[in-house]
Design a binder for these strands. Structure first.
Length: 588
RNA sequence: GCAUCUGUAGCUCAGAGGUCAGAGCAGCGGUUUCCGGUACCGCAGAUCGGGGGUUCGAAUCCUUCCAGAUGCUCCA
């Protein structure tokens, strides 16, 4: 469906044409003075110079042609040359009815759907998720859902960190503790056990211990590096252990992401990219892209327009080992080969900006991607505590994501039980939903690229610009609708009528903005725009609700119109929060 | 040192050339013959970091200074 603003632009263009003026000046925008008008056209001021006329004279010149249009109920030319516009109620009501009939509530889906891979999550094997993983998961999930809603093929890849020293460390520590395990018996030729010799909590305890030891004890580190090397060479026993580590760890990660309502299409790992490396290195050498520099193999990626020195992209370390760059480039090869995406989006910490600049340039220069393959770096800021410093536990340690989620769920549970009589089991489930809304909305309502302060008290509040407030509004609408149905009402009867009052019209205008909001939010990869949209819509509804008797409205047609409006509002709100990655209960 | 980003009300954030700079929280004052008051309405609170410039018009563009965050080949 055409955006309402696009329709208004058409009207404006027609008016300017009729007035003998260039249509390039005919631009309508949402008013920033809602007390004066709903939309405004500022073209007269821009045109003043071209036509050597006073802006107000130009405004008055086109005004009659705006008046002709059926979509406006009120048009005015005011000093210095603004054209103030109000929409006709009938036009708006028609737009509402069309919107309701549309499966996507007016959103224009992509005419040429793209295949877009989105790399987010980025957890490491054998390490628990901590708060640092939150933003990537939450932002990435939202963008993935927005892209899907727009009709694109979105492929979410968790891009698991399973390569490197960490694995060697775990194997080494395991060997110290349980040297008798068959995995360490080189003469063993039988089948290894199916059961892992450790649980996830043991694994999570082993890794930090091993990591600490390796920092203090060079000999231990040597052993871990050796183990890593043997693993990468394919040593049977280590491979079997690696499989166990993967299985135990991935199962746990999946459980945790599920609690966050985050779902990946692919569980690809850094190790999956390793087979591409030898060929890739060979190719880069042969084509002359890569050269040796201080013993390392690098690709120059600096460009003339750079305002600063961009260091070359390193492909192999001087000891011949691969590194993060190598793996990421190989991953790009893998992705191009398997999915041939039009775009790859990386949702990662913004501090990796320079690094990704290097990788992207290298991939482009060495033609690992097509010329028109878009590589997007979506860097997000740090999640800070109330003191403005990176979020920590009270003890100053890294907080687990699970702990954060549990704490906030507990908090929500108390609030829910305090205020409403609700069944124990329901309260628990509801608390989880509200907690997720609190966390995700709190995160997403900030611009992704900026650092933000995670304020538990503020995010979990039912008042103000918060997730719980949005859910409360949805629940309230649902409650009214179900009461209507209980009393024998038919929610599908009738249609939306022209608004009778100001607050009703304001709500319609808010609803009508849904398509433009979603389209823009996805184009700019800015979930916070959806947040501010639903906050406005929720406010518009609550305002309307407070001055309108809905169920006791005596005029049957008007009552049906109200009900249909509520349905549309509920649907738009629920669709929006789905795009953000959470959902609303029926009661709370 | 160089580079990037950020600086808007007491606090947390929107706004990215257009009419008095918007919210929320905190503060103060209201609204209940109640469809969910975890709501709604109002008041108060801002030389948009400072200076200079471009423009009919600048929080928004340019420039400079100040402050903070971050990053600058063999970690990821």
């Amino acid at each position: 469906m055409q955006r309402i603003i696009a329709r208004l632009n058409q009207e404006a263009e027609a008016a300017f044409t009729k007035a003998g003026l260039d249509t390039s000046f005919a631009k309508v925008v949402v008013s920033n003075r809602p007390d004066l008008c709903e939309f405004q056209c500022n073209g007269a001021m821009a045109a003043a110079k071209t036509y050597h006329k006073a802006p107000i004279a130009i405004a008055q010149q086109v005004l009659p042609f705006f008046e002709e249009s059926p979509v406006f109920s009120e048009v005015q030319a005011v000093m210095p040359g603004f054209i103030n516009l109000k929409l006709s109620g009938e036009f708006l009501a028609q737009y509402m009815n069309d919107m309701q009939a549309d499966e996507y509530f007016g959103v224009e889906r992509a005419k040429e759907p793209k295949t877009i891979m989105i790399d987010y999550g980025g957890p490491n094997v054998a390490k628990p998720l901590h708060v640092g993983h939150l933003r990537s998961a939450v932002i990435g999930e939202s963008i993935k859902r927005m892209g899907r809603y727009m009709g694109h093929t979105m492929i979410g890849d968790v891009h698991l960190g399973d390569w490197g020293l960490q694995m060697g460390l775990i194997i080494t520590e395991l060997k110290e503790r349980q040297p008798d395990l068959v995995y360490f018996d080189d003469s063993f030729e039988g089948e290894y056990p199916e059961e892992a010799p450790f649980t996830i909590s043991e694994l999570e305890e082993i890794y930090p211990k091993a990591s600490a030891k390796s920092k203090e004890d060079p000999e231990y580190k040597e052993k871990a590096m050796e183990a890593t090397h043997l693993l990468q060479q394919g040593k049977r026993g280590y491979q079997a252990l690696w499989n166990h580590i993967m299985t135990v760890s991935v199962n746990d990660l999946k459980k945790n992401y599920q609690k966050l309502d985050v779902e990946f299409d692919l569980w690809k790992k850094e190790s999956d990219a390793q087979p591409y490396i030898p060929g890739m290195v060979e190719y880069m050498k042969k084509e002359g892209y890569a050269h040796e520099d201080q013993g390392a193999l690098v690709v120059d990626v600096k460009e003339e327009t750079d305002t600063k020195e961009i260091p070359p992209c390193m492909i192999l370390k001087s000891d011949g080992a691969s590194l993060y760059n190598t793996t990421d480039l190989a991953t790009i090869m893998d992705r191009m080969k398997c999915y041939h995406p039009d775009e790859i989006i990386y949702v990662v910490d913004k501090r990796q900006s320079l690094y990704f600049t290097q990788v992207f340039r290298c991939a482009r220069k060495t033609k690992l991607v097509d010329e028109d393959t878009v590589l997007t770096f979506l860097g997000f800021g740090t999640m800070n505590g109330k003191d403005g410093k990176p979020f920590k536990t009270r003890q100053g340690g890294v907080m687990r994501l699970e702990t954060l989620l549990n704490d906030i769920t507990e908090e929500m549970y108390k609030k829910i039980v305090d205020n409403r009589s609700i069944k124990e089991a329901d309260a628990h489930k509801t608390a989880q939903m509200v907690a997720l809304a609190a966390i995700k909305y709190g995160d997403l309502s900030n611009q992704a690229s900026k650092d933000y302060i995670f304020d538990t008290e503020r995010f979990t509040s039912f008042e103000g610009d918060t997730g719980p407030y949005i859910l409360y509004t949805i629940v309230r609408i649902k409650s009214i609708l179900s009461r209507y149905v209980e009393n024998g009402g038919d929610t599908k009867a009738g249609k939306i009528l022209a608004p009778a009052g100001e607050s009703e019209k304001a709500m319609m205008l808010a609803l009508a903005d849904f398509n433009a909001t979603v389209e823009n939010a996805f184009a700019e990869k800015a979930p916070h725009k959806i947040c501010s949209y639903i906050y406005d819509l929720a406010n518009a509804f609550n305002h309307f609700y407070h001055e309108t008797k809905i169920l006791s409205e005596e005029d049957a047609e008007r009552r049906q119109s109200y009900i249909r409006m509520l349905e549309l509002t509920r649907d738009v709100l629920e669709t929006s929060i789905h795009l953000l990655g959470f959902s609303a209960p029926d009661k709370m």
